[in-house]
Structures are given as C-alpha cells and as structure tokens.
Design a binder for these strands. Structure first.
Lengths: 143, 143
DNA sequence: TAAAATTAAATTGCATACAATCTAACTATA
DNA sequence: TATAGTTAGATTGTATGCAATTTAATTTTA
C-alpha cells in the first residue's frame, strides 16, 4: 500500500493546499477590491496605514512579511493614487516614512464591507475558523 | 473597545496569515529545492508528473489551481531542463500532453528528503497539522 | 576620528500569477 | 455541411515576490 514516494504525493502535502487556498481567496477578493481600486497587496498595505497612520517601510515590511523590493513599487503606486505620502525621516535619512493621506483614510470607509463579503465566500464553521486562525498565527510566530 | 473598523485590522484577518504563512513556507523550500534545481512551482508540477507520468496542461492546471498563462512557461522551462516532453495529442490537436522523461523520474529520488526537511521547519503538533490539513482541504473543495 | 561595518531603501533580474485576448481545432446545430 | 459556438493552449500586459546588488546614511571600532 504505502510506497517510499508517498511523501511526494500532492495529496499528502501540507504546504500545497496552503498555497492554493491562499491564492484562491485572494482571487475572491479581486472583484471587491476592484470596486475601491486596490489590489490585495495594496489593500494590506493600506490596512497597516489605517491603523498606524505613519510607519517606515522597514516596519511595514515586518508586519506584512514583504521586503522593500516588493513594497517600494506598491507604495509608489499608492502614492500616485493619492492615498499616502512618502518622505525621508529628518532624524535618519535612510528611513522612508509612509503616511496615509486624508484621501487614504476615506478609503477605509469604502473598504468596510470587504471583510464581510469575503467571509461569505469562505464558509467555514466558526470553530474551524478559530483553529485555522490559531494554527496559522502560531506558524507565523515561528518565522 | 470595539470600533467599527475592527474588521479591517490586520490582526483580525484570516486570509492574511494564510497568505503570509504560504509565502514563508515556500521561502523555506527554496534552499532544498535549489539542490535539485527546481522552483516551488516547478516542484509541484513535477509532483503531478511523478504520479501521473502523462497528463495534459488543462488537467495539470486543475490539480494545481494554475492556468495556462502560468503553466506554459513553467512547463517550457522543465522541458528545457529535460524533465518532461510536450507533445500535441493525436486525437485532439488542441490538447498538449506533458510526459515525464526518465531524467524527470530520476529527479524524484533526489527529491525524496525534501518533505522531511520541510516538516522539520514547520514544527506543528501532529493534531494541529491534521486539523490544518482538513480545514484547508475542505476550503479547496469549495473552489 | 578615519575606516570598516551596518543599515534602510531602491534597483535589477528572474519567476511566478492571472485576466484578457488570440489562435487553432473541435463540436453542435440550423 | 457551412457556420456559430466552444475549447485548449499560447500570448500579452500588469502586478507581485524575492534574492542579490547598489547607494546613501549612520554606527561601530580600531
């Protein structure tokens, strides 16, 4: 029954369904986020700003698990859209502070129904959602 | 305590940790997969071929949740590496059959220790791994 | 304090992802 | 059976994502 290659079967992977589910959910976000002219990456960047108002690229990267190679173009796009400003720190010129604009804060109200819409797409029992959340958070803590 | 914007906090998202954990694990794969000259996407494509030997692009896409826009260049790269052949079906010229080569099958032996190495990086209790797997599979089934 | 080391972003190069479009081939139907 | 519709892959364009490198600024250290 069991052969030495079982561990390489797609159905026995734990990472693959993680990868696939993640992509599929982000795909579900697309139509809702398009209504407020954001991509998923832009959306999570704005989430950070909606909470922190002003944060440097490094700290935002730490929260989002993204490096400057990814964040720089995303933040430049959001700046062009008028949702944030980018300004070097006065104390340390290496640091770039990203600050949400009034327009950026207004966007939050337009995003308010996105989480609910996504919740409807996922359809997990609440106990499943809780344990999924806990396990993922535990894993994130290990990185 | 609770405000109307709570649902938009990064810490209250279920998709974000899914997205972040998925990326971080794929990053963990990188050094192990580099030893056998594969990227993660190439690795899961090879996994399908190690099981099925010959499969068309559409069916592989259904298994991997990837479309031809992603798969075509991945399969062309794997063809260049000599791990598979690409040939139009005789019965239906629209269909492209992808078949693993002997060289591609040899690669499976070199990949045998990858799952174990990744398992050590993840460090989940076995009950957590089981419920994570079950929940993700259930979600995948809904797409 | 001058040189070395470190740090934060930006840049470059490569590999995905995916929507939208295109092309060729097959199928259904009037 | 001619035509409309459908299907499978490939292509195009845009947006990530990340490793590696670069640049400028700051910190450490000899």
């Amino acid at each position: 029954m069991a052969d030495k290659y079982d561990s390489l079967k797609l159905d026995n992977q734990i990472c693959f369904p993680l990868y696939a589910v993640s992509k599929e959910i982000i795909r579900k976000y697309k139509p809702f986020l398009e209504e407020i002219d954001l991509t998923y990456t832009q959306y999570i960047a704005m989430m950070v700003l909606w909470e922190d108002r002003c944060i440097c690229v490094k700290d935002m990267g730490a929260k989002l698990f993204l490096d400057s190679g990814t964040l720089t173009p995303v933040l430049k796009t959001l700046e062009k859209k008028g949702y944030l400003t980018r300004r070097r720190s006065d104390e340390d010129e290496r640091v770039l502070n990203v600050e949400v604009t009034e327009e950026g804060m207004k966007l939050r109200d337009r995003a308010l129904d996105v989480p609910g819409k996504i919740g409807q797409c996922i359809a997990l029992e609440s106990d499943e959602a809780v344990s999924l959340y806990k396990i993922l958070r535990k894993m994130l803590g290990q990185f």
